[in-house]
């Protein structure tokens, strides 16, 4: 199956933000058959990566339903949220914290699909990788 495109754009093309700052942008879902979109979900979230099982924290969540065709989801949809004070983005040795905007689209038929655009919250440098623990 050919992946279906989702475009996520941050205002001013920024990818770095400070805690408490406002994150704003737009997204556009363009499936092959636009009428088949049932809903889209927008999430501003952090996830962990690394050795441990993945944890996820959703800071901002919106779901838009097509509502019997009255709400056309093919348009450019804006989003805006004030970012929290923590957790800050972090590249640790075995624990990494990644912030992203994720858009998930639900077609009327077939598989749901999503795309995400990562950004950095705060400016914590990556941890040095020690040779041994």
């Amino acid at each position: 199956m050919t992946p279906q495109p989702i475009e996520i754009l941050f205002d001013d093309d920024r990818t770095q933000f400070s805690p408490g700052e406002e994150l704003a942008g737009q997204f556009l879902v363009v499936p092959g058959d636009a009428r088949s979109l049932r809903a889209v979900e927008l999430s501003v979230l952090w996830t962990t990566e690394g050795k441990g099982d993945e944890d996820i924290g959703v800071h901002h969540f919106e779901r838009l339903d097509a509502q019997d065709g009255e709400n056309d989801l093919r348009r450019l949809i804006a989003f805006r949220t004030r970012l929290p004070n923590s957790p800050l983005s972090y590249q640790g040795a075995i624990v990494k914290i990644v912030w992203c905007v994720r858009v998930r689209a639900f077609p009327l038929r077939g598989d749901d699909f999503f795309s995400e655009e990562r950004f950095q919250l705060g400016n914590v440098p990556a941890a040095e990788q020690p040779a041994t623990s």
Binding site: D111, F113, S115, R118
Partner: peptide, 12 residues
């Protein structure tokens, strides 16, 4: 590499 945008399909 970190901020690369990609589309993921979720298989049923």
């Amino acid at each position: 590499g970190t901020f690369e945008n990609s589309v993921h399909s979720v298989s049923k």
